[in-house]
Design a protein around this nucleic acid. Structure first.
Lengths: 249, 249
DNA sequence: CGGCTGCTTGACCGTCATCAATAAATGTGG
DNA sequence: CCACATTTATTGATGACGGTCAAGCAGCCG
């Protein structure tokens, strides 16, 4: 995992206390002692957009938290069909203590900075960091819920519902990363800047790139969204878009 | 959760030491002290096929392990479209410490016996049961992997591939529940008795009941399976069926 | 035996994938 | 800064896979 071709490794360039994901990542509820432990062993790595961070089956040597940028977890079939099975946004955790190989391909879709720990030392430290342990279980349970919600989308939703769900998901996550966990309910229009290309969205939603494009056009023609360039979506009426999702998300 | 209409509650009718899931459930690596703690607070409940075990949004009062039988986790949309997001077979855990409401609908598909714990006491005990805590994280990570594998199936696989994947999944889980975790690679034919109806399979696979039925027929005509009644499938050549899956599962 | 439920089969149709051609955005070098 | 090349996105034409609607069939139990 975390191959070193053409990416930068820096040891502890940021103090945890000023870290942008300090209060949401796996260290969220770490006390002073725990934080000092983490701080002493952590290091940063940066990957460029498009770079592979890890491949399924690789030895799992490094665990990490996303500090900035967006990465994907994906699963592929022999003939090339691929499904993104997880979006990794700032504060999300990569890798799992107790496993020795990587379970899914990890790819940077924008420039990504990771806060890294070597796996073995981290696992050893974990015993003495009950708050981190609890937080890790909590985050894993959240991911499980998210994965299961996505299963409903993949198995049962129409292309239009998938796009609407996706836009609202990104809107929600953007809002809760800027403002402090507020819900997205304001009547104002919302500007979303998409971290993903049409192709990546298609891979995430179980669609083709053409269908994604057509649904964007359709939503635009129906006045539910406005496009500013290709990567910025304006949602004039969040409630109206929510009505397209098909369930109470 | 765990409403009491028409189901049986029995306190500690089985000793943990003779429990069929003792070595695979959340208690798998519990030591003598931990097991004694669990034993003193556990109780059993039995649900009939078709009964609702819990509904999304219910207060989460009881956590449990499946001892015998099969249950499903499912997620529904307003208009009734439903996706099964998890199969619960013996040893699987239901509910999550740290949450106070049920996240998904839980339904018994056969008669189900659960080994139950009231949530609050269980959470308190958890602090003193490190082995249980670790096992719980491990099981949650396994579930997450399984959910993500299923996302590939739901998003990218054809109906035929879905059915083949499902049959092999059940075959694998049946084998590893009888023989001790051996892999299913024997050249002999394998008999699978399906715990699910066509309808439930469809809900699990993101298909309709008609498509499931048609694919069973197609696989039968191609000599990949034989049906004995409607609930028993004989796979004469596991490798041949595996070739229909599309990836190295 | 009739009625019920669950499964299979058939006919038809819609959604989305596929193939293909532009068009727009992005990048590169002169 | 513009011409050109390359990637990314849009739009169109067509068809296949799986969904829908509907009828028949099989097993089960009173």
């Amino acid at each position: 995992m975390l191959d070193d071709d053409a990416n930068v490794t820096v040891r502890a360039e940021i103090r945890c206390s000023t870290c942008p994901v300090r209060h949401r990542a796996v260290c969220a509820r770490a006390d002073a002692d725990e934080l000092a432990l983490l701080d002493s062993v952590k290091f940063y790595k940066t990957y460029q957009a498009g770079q592979t961070i890890a491949l399924r089956g690789d030895p799992l040597e490094v665990l990490s938290s996303v500090v900035t940028g967006t990465a994907t977890l994906s699963q592929s079939m022999e003939d090339g069909r691929t499904q993104i099975v997880g979006l990794l946004l700032p504060s999300d955790f990569i890798g799992r203590p107790g496993r020795d190989t990587v379970a899914h391909d990890v790819t940077a879709v924008t420039e990504v900075t990771l806060c890294c720990f070597r796996r073995k030392p981290f696992e050893d430290l974990l015993v003495n960091m009950p708050h981190v342990q609890v937080r890790l279980l909590e985050m894993t349970l959240d991911e499980l819920d998210a994965a299961r919600d996505w299963m409903l989308l993949l198995g049962r939703k129409t292309a239009r519902e998938k796009i609407a769900s996706f836009l609202l998901l990104i809107a929600q996550r953007t809002v809760s990363n800027t403002i402090s966990n507020s819900d997205l309910a304001c009547d104002d229009e919302v500007r979303i800047s998409l971290p993903l290309s049409r192709e990546t969205m298609a891979t995430y939603l179980g669609l083709t790139i053409e269908t994604v494009s057509r649904q964007f056009t359709a939503l635009r023609k129906d006045g539910l969204i406005t496009l500013d360039g290709t990567r910025t979506v304006i949602v004039p009426d969040v409630a109206a878009l929510s009505a397209e999702v098909g369930d109470g998300d």
